[in-house]
Amino acid sequence: MELKNISKLYTEKVRALDNVSLTFDKGEWLTILGPSGSGKSTLLNIIGGLDKPNEGYAFVDGFNITQLSQSDLTKFRREHVGFVFQQFHLVPYLTATENVMLAQYFHSIADEEEAATALKNLGLGHRLNHLPSQLSSGELQRVCIARALINEPKVLLADEPTGNLDHQNECTVLDIFKQLNQKGLTIIIVTHNPEIANLGNFAIRLEHGKVVADSQR
């Protein structure tokens, strides 16, 4: 993955990202640190094909995603990326299994058994038919991870994945990420929490849209 001179301007005076460049390999874990409004989520959205930069280019998994059309970007998201959000963003009227199946449906064909297995692998075998309102925040985030992984993405993008979790659930989720990374999945995590940076291969720190530090372990 290579990002070169990426800038994102919301208005002429508001630069969310300012000339950001970075390179890292498949199977690595990148942590993006920084205070609120520093451009972390914007950078994650550009890498995930949800947003486009005004300047620079980004190669992700062999695609120059800054050059892709909207429909190709949609296809890229569907086939190469899995998202985990701080707010979970589960559909409230669908069960845990159905929420996972939704991602399958948009990718190819919904397979209930496969979705249930993904949830069981994350310790949610007893929660398959529960609605999001019936799950704890840790369980919600695990459903979110199952949904992100169900289509076997090349990159897992997580925006403050532990921001709404207590310490115990935070550890559970980070353990899952560690295992996934050990199996070769590329992980990019946006967080406020500097401790999470210690888990990855390297971290960058953003302030006012600029990379102010990067650390290689």
Binding site: S71, T74, F76
Partner: peptide, 16 residues
């Protein structure tokens, strides 16, 4: 709109 935003993020194309 949140649900639709999520669908778009998950890679749902306009047809689906």
């Amino acid at each position: 709109k949140n649900e639709i935003g999520l669908m778009l993020a998950l890679g749902a194309d306009s047809k689906k």
